[in-house]
Nucleic acid binder design. Structure first.
Lengths: 342, 342
DNA sequence: CTGAAAGCGCTTACAG
DNA sequence: CTGAAAGCGCTTACAG
């Protein structure tokens, strides 16, 4: 029956005394097969432990039932994911679960344009690319190969060219700026990461124009995402080094860990939070809710976005139309102690 | 050339004026092909944007270059991953990265024994199953189908039957018990989760025999993992309700979030931590390092374990022998304020 | 050095 | 209602 490996459709056919065609029909509910035959085939199939090969089937339809999530900053997050970088992992978890609900599996991959990537890394039916870089080569590759994809956040240089779940980082930044201003901030500094994605670039643009509209020199500093809390002193040194009239009274860090470090460093150096300095984060890290003071963050709703991305990816994989523009979950504020003055 | 979809090996062959066989040989460095021919074929291949189909290739070798990570408590973690459940996500991240380094992609899947799972969920070359349940049907399925797998933690009912990265939860528990005893604990209570995995069952066994050896009635309580910090009051009520001579002076919670809740509830109710009560966690959550007091945890080294699991899975997928027993990274202690008396 | 043929395990017109 | 045949895109003996 099964000489070396798994039983195939032929084994089932032989054991049931029918042709492979009929087995296929019976098991897939295609064509017309007599009731009894179907039942016999099903019985035999489970007896011999038959399980159709996803690969062989994939070859027909050139679809594997596989989605891929490209976490763009995977490597800048460091070989081992630092604790507290919740955002991408929450996206990955939600996306995987959601994919299964749609009948797909989800692959987690790094950059598929690197030489020597596994072939399987390009075998997915559709791709979700999180936080693409400016002119991201991954998007270029996928679109050249006509492989369907959707991005989570836009390629800042090619916004609108590709399907995207994208509220716009500038939009999100504005939400936080307004909150800080309402909370009393006159001079807001921004700390971004260094990856050239929309999240970093768009926020900078947004803060810059806000500052300039008020006749202020924009206070912006870019520091590596992976540096985490360690950036605290560097940020304080940078913004509180020179002319006191140029000191910010609020610091908005795009990453939660940067914000945690800044709040800690400020307090350690006698700058009270929130009395002297408001501190807020773009993408919340766990410690922002437990630190003292707790830190105000944006909630980017990673799970909802991931679910939406999966939905779009599935439609693309199946060649079905997508609703455009895609309605995106809007960022909301989690207001905490660090921006709440008594 | 490429009528509807991607170019195939035939398109390349035609464009290069050779047979598909020669293209295959040239591109894979198999057989003997003249230098110039190889170069011409390579040139043509990139010109037409040819990329071999991982699926077709997979059909030959019945290998896709795909690994799968089955996160067993995926659903008990809830549809959306609660923040702070670091452990499994760190495993997932490290495993995905490590897989790519070995030339494989990594799929994240939920229970592949559920009816209606995508076929692709069973198409991986080898599986990693994290924290299998007692007599886990996933392991039964995989082993029946002769699909290679390795577990992260053992099936408590079938320890030793399958390849496993497994230090043994009882071992790990003992490490923490010793620490608590050294820190002055006389009576240690244990709070486990409710999944029937080795982590929960082995710890209970370990604490039970330790208590009984000292002539004490074991203090053990099982509460759902997903309840998180909310269990705090229930735990305090349970252990501090009755006879004061039976009150614990240390609580060891297997999950970090349980521990965070217990410490918070204790303090709120006038039980000082660590003076009156030591609190510790098995698997650290982020907030354990930032809460006040910070909470002592075990470090289970999820990244190293994940890497090791990938290595084993790859060997299994390729039919290579594995070193047994597998040398496992030992849990270590992260001693913090909650178990440090002045 | 190169290619025709068979085959991997399925599905899908098509014919009976 | 059932099956023989072709084909999905590759690889791999084998023959020339």
């Amino acid at each position: 029956m099964q000489q070396s490996g798994r039983p195939t459709i032929k084994d089932v056919a032989r054991a049931a005394g029918v042709s492979p065609t009929t087995v296929s029909h019976a098991l897939n509910g295609k064509g017309v097969v007599r009731r009894e035959t179907v039942e016999r085939i099903e019985r035999v199939a489970t007896e011999v432990g038959y399980r159709p090969s996803a690969i062989a089937r994939g070859l027909q339809k050139s679809r594997l039932g596989l989605l891929a999530l490209v976490i763009r900053p995977f490597h800048s997050l460091d070989t081992f994911l630092p604790e507290g970088v919740d955002y991408f992992l929450r996206v990955a978890g939600a996306a995987s679960l959601s994919a299964m609900e749609h009948g797909y599996s989800m692959m987690l991959i790094d950059d598929p344009t690197r030489p020597g990537v596994p072939f399987s890394a390009l075998a997915a039916d559709a791709y979700i690319v999180t936080e693409p870089f400016e002119n991201d080569p991954v998007l270029t590759l996928l679109s050249e190969q006509r492989i369907p994809f959707v991005t989570l956040g836009a390629d800042p240089a090619r916004r609108g060219e590709f399907p995207a779940i994208d509220e716009g980082a500038d939009q999100q930044t504005l939400l936080m700026i307004s909150h800080l201003a309402e909370a009393g901030a006159q001079r807001i500094a921004l700390v971004t990461g260094t990856d050239r994605n929309d999240w970093n670039l768009g926020s900078k643009r947004s803060l810059t124009s806000w500052s300039e509209a008020r006749g202020q020199r924009p206070l912006v500093l870019a520091l590596p995402e992976a540096a985490g809390e360690r950036v605290g002193d560097a940020v304080i040194d940078h913004f509180f080094g020179g002319d006191p009239s140029e000191h910010p009274d609020a610091v908005f860090c795009l990453t939660g860990r940067h914000a945690a470090g800044v709040a800690e460093a400020a307090i350690r150096r006698g700058i009270r939070v929130p009395e002297d300095l408001l501190v807020a984060a773009g993408s919340g890290a766990m410690q922002n809710r437990t630190s003292s003071p707790t830190v105000t963050t944006l909630d980017l709703h990673p799970e909802e976005s991931a679910q939406l991305a999966v939905e779009v990816a599935v439609r693309l994989a199946e060649g079905r139309p997508i609703d455009t523009p895609i309605a995106v979950p809007a960022a909301t504020l989690d207001i905490r102690e660090s921006t709440t003055r008594a």
